[in-house]
């Protein structure tokens, strides 16, 4: 089966997942206890006005109609109106989403660079002191609470050493790209931590396993220099698993990002969602969940496609 066919097959597979996600999101939103709209407007509006608002949210319709309306809103009406803020959900979420995206991309970059680096150093020194030390760091690091790790970083690098800004996304009055990068270092690192260590572990394992494989022995028996075996053959063979793990860890990373947003006051989607929880703004949360789910699906699809392209068994029709 050719790569193209494989990719289209994957695309087709995404559709049912999307449907399931949207249904689940919708149902969960409707399980919200109490009456969010009453709670929001009871102090400021009369009973008639509240009923009118409920009508405008289509709450008198049968559930399946509500679902269809909501799906329609996702495409045409910016995900419906937020209960608390009254504006279109996507127009509220979009700027926050972009901020989150910036942080996530920084996190992924840190995760991949340092994860592969730590894993490679450990794997290439398998069994030696450097390997043991790296693995100790990985083990301790994997058991750090992201939230707490962020705090400790702030305390050390922002408060004691004063190398980096404490929180937020930009200095007062803005400061251009350099300023953004400075603000990204600590949160990016905190958000990447867990995924990075997972990646390091897999990279190390991959290198150790490939080093013991028969084909490496073949090239060793021909006297191919070690660095060439590592650089070309082992490198090429662990590439696909590394991409795959990175893709899988995006979920962990996004979770990390949302913890981190709270620690560093990053104006991202996590902050919006947490506020919405307290405001019982289920429309906003539904929109946010759909947005994140879409990203997640896109990332997964891309990962799958890259892994497929890297797999020689699929490269030929």
């Amino acid at each position: 089966m050719g790569t193209l066919k494989h990719i289209s097959w994957r695309l087709v597979n995404v559709v049912p997942v999307l449907v399931v996600v949207s249904v689940l999101t919708f149902v969960l939103g409707h399980l919200t206890p109490g009456d969010p709209i009453e709670a929001q407007f009871v102090r400021t509006h009369t009973a008639e006005q509240i009923d009118a608002i409920k009508l405008s949210y289509g709450l008198d319709l049968p559930v399946w109609r509500q679902y269809l309306n909501w799906v329609g809103d996702l495409f045409t009406a910016g995900g419906g109106n937020s209960i608390a803020q009254g504006r279109e959900v996507f127009s509220i979420l979009w700027p926050a989403f972009v901020n989150t995206l910036i942080l996530t991309v920084a996190g992924v970059a840190i995760c991949v660079v340092f994860g592969v680096l730590i894993g490679a150093v450990a794997g290439l020194n398998h069994g030696r002191l450097l390997d043991r030390l790296s693995m100790l760091v990985v083990q301790v690091g994997s058991n750090l609470s992201v939230y707490w790790f962020g705090l400790v970083l702030i305390w050390i690098f922002a408060l004691r050493l004063q190398w980096l800004p404490v929180s937020g996304m930009e200095s007062r009055g803005g400061g251009g790209f350099g300023d953004l990068v400075a603000h990204l270092v600590l949160p990016g690192f905190s958000a990447a931590l867990i995924a990075m260590l997972v990646l390091a572990r897999f990279t190390r394992l991959g290198i150790v396993q490939e080093s013991n494989s028969d084909y490496v022995r073949t090239f060793e028996s021909q006297g191919l220099p070690r660095r060439r075996i590592v650089g070309k053959h082992i490198g090429r063979n662990i590439l696909a698993p590394i991409v795959n793990i990175t893709g899988l860890e995006i979920g962990t990373l996004i979770t990390g990002v949302i913890f981190v947003e709270s620690v560093f006051n990053w104006p991202g989607i996590g902050t919006q969602l947490l506020n919405a929880v307290y405001g019982k703004d289920y429309v906003l949360i539904q929109g946010g969940v759909v947005l994140v789910a879409m990203c997640y699906l896109v990332v997964n699809l891309l990962t799958d496609v890259v892994v497929d392209v890297l797999n020689p068994r699929l490269r030929r029709a």
Partner: peptide
């Protein structure tokens, strides 16, 4: 699907439905 989906999103939804 569950494996790679950000757990935090699920947690947020649970928090909405069941109160923190």
């Amino acid at each position: 699907v569950m494996f790679a989906f950000p757990v935090i999103i699920i947690a947020v939804v649970f928090a909405l439905v069941f109160d923190p």
